[in-house]
């Protein structure tokens, strides 16, 4: 492969593509807000020990189920109140951001890498390989994702790691399908045929020639998967099958707090709000990414 003329649609490397991307992305105000919130949460998560007023597992036995600071029985040291064993909710939420973002990252990486690999193989080779792979994906997709994840976690044993594995597995078929479909449309395009004629090997064709041209929909899907993973992990935590206490994972915190719904609604309110805000921010970004990367919408 000698000339760049063989890959005229290649995106991402030269500066104009990046600035073009930013141009479209920033036109979507929501996306910019989402990005801002996301960066803020990321920042909080990374520097949690700096921002959190207390250690996440520090128990103050004189301050059980304290109300938020602005309420009647609140204390200024515990801005969002305390939970049943006297831990600061704000600090736990800040540390919890680490888990949620980590879950999202791991799940997306696992499912994108494995999904894209399998999808590329299915699409590129076609034939029996394709049929077998797609049938297996059909089987996975025949179950409601949360139910499948729930049973998987029950099999693997409750815990954060297993929850992430289970969610990655149920997310993966979407990437397989997407990657395969992109490959099928790209496979017979001129630039691919040209590279093949030029003597490019299978791996090179798959990863360097075809893959970069399927990136746009994959990125959009990955963003969606990121937020879905956070929601699913929280749901599993809520059902008692995700991260185990005392891990300050938001869904697990919600599950633990559920018994206080009457007496101390704030312990139920804040973890849920944290999940909502994070997921919303990522989805806002996802919309912006789609606008910026999807050429069809660009024109309209």
């Amino acid at each position: 492969m000698s000339t760049s003329s063989a890959t005229p649609e290649k995106t991402g490397t030269h500066p104009s593509a990046l600035s073009e991307f930013w141009h479209y992305f920033s036109r979507n105000k929501g996306a910019v807000i989402g990005l801002g919130i996301f960066v803020a949460i990321l920042f909080l998560a990374i520097f949690a020990p700096v921002f959190a007023p207390h250690a996440p597992s520090e128990q103050n036995r004189d301050a059980l189920l304290l109300a938020p600071a602005w309420m009647e029985n609140g204390k200024a040291t515990y801005v969002l109140g305390t939970d049943a064993v006297g831990r600061d909710i704000l600090s736990r939420l800040i540390y919890g951001a680490r888990f949620s973002l980590f879950i999202g990252l791991v799940v997306v990486t696992l499912s994108v890498v494995s999904g894209v690999l399998i999808g590329l193989v299915a699409g590129y080779f076609g034939g029996k390989v394709d049929i077998v792979i797609m049938r297996i994906m059909d089987i996975v997709l025949a179950f409601p994702s949360l139910l499948l994840a729930l049973v998987l976690v029950a099999v693997l044993g409750p815990g954060l790691l297993n929850a992430m594995i289970a969610i990655s597995l149920v997310n993966q078929p979407h990437f397989v399908r997407l990657a395969r479909a992109s490959v099928l449309t790209e496979r017979d395009k001129e630039y691919v045929i040209a590279s093949r004629v030029a003597g490019a090997g299978t791996l090179r064709l798959m990863f360097l020639t075809i893959l970069p041209n399927c990136l746009a929909p994959l990125i959009v899907q990955a963003t969606l998967a990121f937020s879905a993973a956070i929601l699913d992990a929280a749901a599993l935590g809520f059902l008692g099958m995700g991260a185990q206490p005392p891990t300050p994972e938001w869904g697990t915190m919600l599950a633990e707090a559920r018994e206080f719904i009457q007496r101390a609604p704030w312990v139920v309110t804040f973890p849920g709000l944290a999940i909502l805000i994070t997921v919303l921010a990522i989805n806002l970004m996802g919309d912006g990414l789609r606008d910026a990367l999807d050429p069809k919408l660009k024109r309209s």
């Binding site: 189920l65 049943a84 018994e259 206080f260 009457q262």
Partner: peptide
Amino acid sequence: PNAADVAE
């Protein structure tokens, strides 16, 4: 009942 609700 939830222990937390008894008082109420």
